[in-house]
Amino acid sequence: MTSFFDCSDDDGLAEGTKQARASIESGELIVLPTDTVYGIGADAFSAAAVTALLNAKGRDRQSPPPVLIPALATLDALAETVPQEARDLAGAFWPGGLTIVLPAQPSLSWDLGETKGTVALRMPNNPIALALLRSTGPLAVSSANKTGMPAATTARGAEEMLGESVQVYLDGGTVGVDYADADVTETSSTIVDATALASGSGKLRILRHGVISDEQIREVVGDALDDEPAGDQQPT
């Protein structure tokens, strides 16, 4: 049974967060607002829940979801090695529209798909998302849409695509407005790969161009950014 919660007031947010956490703990899926697009979320430490997330989107294990975190301190708990440039980027753009790919802690008991030992981390700049993450801990979250369709910027838009595959929808109004006002045409987060930098074998690469520009990233990391384009990934 799908439930829809208007989180525009404190009571709705409290009840929605409570029900979303219960769904996460039961291995079910939820939809939540972020600062860029709406996301479909699952318990990052439940392989079955992550599989359900990928199935709901029409994806396979070759497209593992990123993990949203509630605080900068969580970075070291989930990533094995964090180069200084990645910390600088997180300090500059978190919470916000930047996803950082890093080597995952090998001791973590999770299965996000074919990650090749990495994890994509982001701290969203949305009070509803952060309230939920503080309650649940890290969540596997991908954009709330069917693969090949535009990412949803409203909860109802997400519901139209995902329907009853999701148990709880948290409605936080239209998202991505601030980025659109800044003349950004891409609504997804920018993805940077810091794994080569972490291993000392290369530079930081931009995997997907998004709401944080190449110029903004270069202002923070300087020559640590690879000049060779890596090509865009599909939105997650």
Results as ranks from 00 to 15, higher is better:
A182M: 04
I191Q: 03
Y38Q: 00
K57I: 09
I100V: 13
D76R: 10
P103T: 12
K18L: 06
E186T: 08
D232R: 10
G172N: 15
L54N: 02
L133I: 03
A180T: 11
S188Y: 09
L225F: 12
L32H: 14
L225M: 06
D9H: 11
D183Q: 10
Q167L: 12
N145D: 00
R59D: 00
A49N: 08
T34I: 01
S199K: 12
L78N: 02
I217R: 08
A224L: 05
L207E: 14
G231E: 04
S188W: 09
Q216M: 10
D226V: 04
R61V: 13
A14H: 14
V82L: 02
L204E: 12
P64H: 09
S165T: 09
G176K: 09
A22V: 06
L98Q: 00
R218F: 01
E215H: 11
A49L: 07
A230E: 13
A42I: 02
L130V: 14
R156N: 12
L225P: 11
A52W: 03
I212C: 02
G41M: 03
T154D: 02
A86V: 06
I24M: 13
K203R: 04
G163Q: 14
G137P: 08
D6H: 07
G172D: 12
F4Y: 14
D193I: 11
F5G: 05
I206V: 15
D60L: 07
L78S: 00
P235Y: 00
A129N: 07
G96T: 10
W94P: 07
A48V: 08
S199A: 11
F93C: 01
M149S: 08
V221E: 05
A52P: 05
V166R: 13
A180R: 15
V175C: 10
R208N: 04
E164T: 13
R59L: 10
K146T: 09
G172P: 13
E160N: 14
R61M: 09
G97M: 07
A79L: 06
L72K: 12
D111Q: 02
S142M: 08
